[in-house]
Simulated assay, not measured.
Amino acid sequence: MAVGNTLVSFLFLFIAVAHLAEASLPDYIKACSASDPKFNDCAFETARASMRKFAKGDKERDIPVLDPLHVKEIKAIGGKNGEGLSVIFTDCKLTGCEKLDLIKFKIDIAKKRIVGKAVGNLVLDAIYDISGRILIIPLTGHGNAYVDLRDCKFTYIFDFDYVNGTDGKQYLTIVKDTLKYDIGKASFKLENLFNGDKILGETTNRLLNDSWKEVINEVGPPVAESLKTAFRSTIQKFLDSASVDELLLP
């Protein structure tokens, strides 16, 4: 009888532990089998379905909200020695991450690399401070900025490694990451250019929109860097909350 009770207790304990391990993953994440020939198909579908959940944040896992993404400051100092177009954006609010559409997601376990590609539109609202030149036109101004980025293509690549957690389990950690981007079209609206000169302001905004590629060459990299920092922080927080055994089934 004692042996029977012990066996029953063990089975209940085993079921409870298995249930807890399964429950440690959020309901929007599906574990995939690394030995499954369609492993990357499973990973893609899971990542695609979970993107909007990630954008909304997950308080239980300390994952911050990505949409809107708030950034204190974005600096774009163009040209050598500060020559060219220089813009400082403050109190930045970037919206659109929630609606990005994931079109590729591939995990290479042997190379310890993950590649994700997404497309969509982003909008930046901020306070701007601008000086310098665009083409041959001098610019100066401070006020509200609205930047509309259309048909964006993002490729986020990160290399990972395995680390041992305090619980004895293995976890993934990001060791290197890059964010590549291509903007299909950009439009700008900067208020209060030239201390509120309406004619100069409207003319300059038209020039900025006509020369949007040149402007993006200046302001694109720091905006992308802010996005990359947010992506990395969000993904790492999630990876810290789920062990390799939970994410990758045999």
Rank of each mutant, 00 (worst) to 15 (best):
I74L: 07
K75Y: 12
A76T: 02
A76E: 00
A76N: 00
I77W: 08
I77D: 02
I77T: 11
I77K: 07
G78M: 06
G79R: 01
G79T: 01
G79K: 03
K80T: 12
K80F: 15
N81I: 03
N81F: 07
G82A: 00
G82S: 00
E83Q: 06
E83N: 08
G84K: 02
G84W: 07
L85Q: 02
S86D: 02
S86Y: 08
V87D: 01
V87P: 00
I88D: 06
I88R: 10
I88Q: 11
I88L: 14
I88V: 15
I88F: 10
F89C: 06
F89V: 04
F89T: 05
T90E: 03
T90A: 05
D91T: 01
D91Q: 06
K93H: 13
L94F: 08
L94C: 07
T95A: 14
T95Y: 13
G96T: 07
C97V: 15
E98Y: 09
E98K: 10
K99D: 09
K99S: 08
L100I: 07
D101L: 09
D101C: 11
D101S: 14
D101M: 14
D101Y: 13
L102W: 05
L102D: 07
L102K: 13
L102I: 13
L102C: 12
L102F: 13
L102Q: 14
L102H: 08
I103T: 13
I103C: 08
K104N: 09
K104P: 00
K104L: 13
F105C: 08
F105A: 12
K106Q: 14
I107N: 05
I107F: 09
D108P: 01
D108R: 10
I109D: 00
I109T: 01
A110R: 15
A110L: 15
A110G: 07
A110S: 15
A110Y: 15
K111N: 08
K111M: 03
K111R: 11
K112W: 05
K112N: 11
R113E: 12
R113C: 09
I114K: 04
I114S: 04
I114T: 05
I114C: 06
V115C: 05
G116S: 12
G116L: 09
K117F: 03
K117A: 13
A118Y: 03
A118V: 00
G120H: 06
G120Q: 01
G120T: 02
N121Q: 07
N121H: 03
N121D: 10
L122S: 11
V123W: 03
V123Y: 09
V123R: 14
V123I: 14
L124D: 05
L124H: 02
D125V: 10
D125G: 10
A126E: 01
I127H: 09
I127R: 13
I127M: 13
D129I: 06
D129V: 11
I130R: 03
I130Q: 05
I130Y: 06
I130E: 01
I130M: 14
I130L: 14
S131K: 15
G132Y: 11
G132Q: 07
R133I: 15
R133E: 14
R133H: 15
I134R: 04
I134S: 04
I134T: 09
L135F: 15
L135K: 08
I136H: 04
I136C: 02
P138M: 10
P138R: 03
P138W: 08
L139R: 09
L139A: 07
L139F: 13
T140P: 00
T140S: 15
G141E: 05
G141W: 09
G141Q: 04
H142N: 12
H142Y: 14
H142W: 12
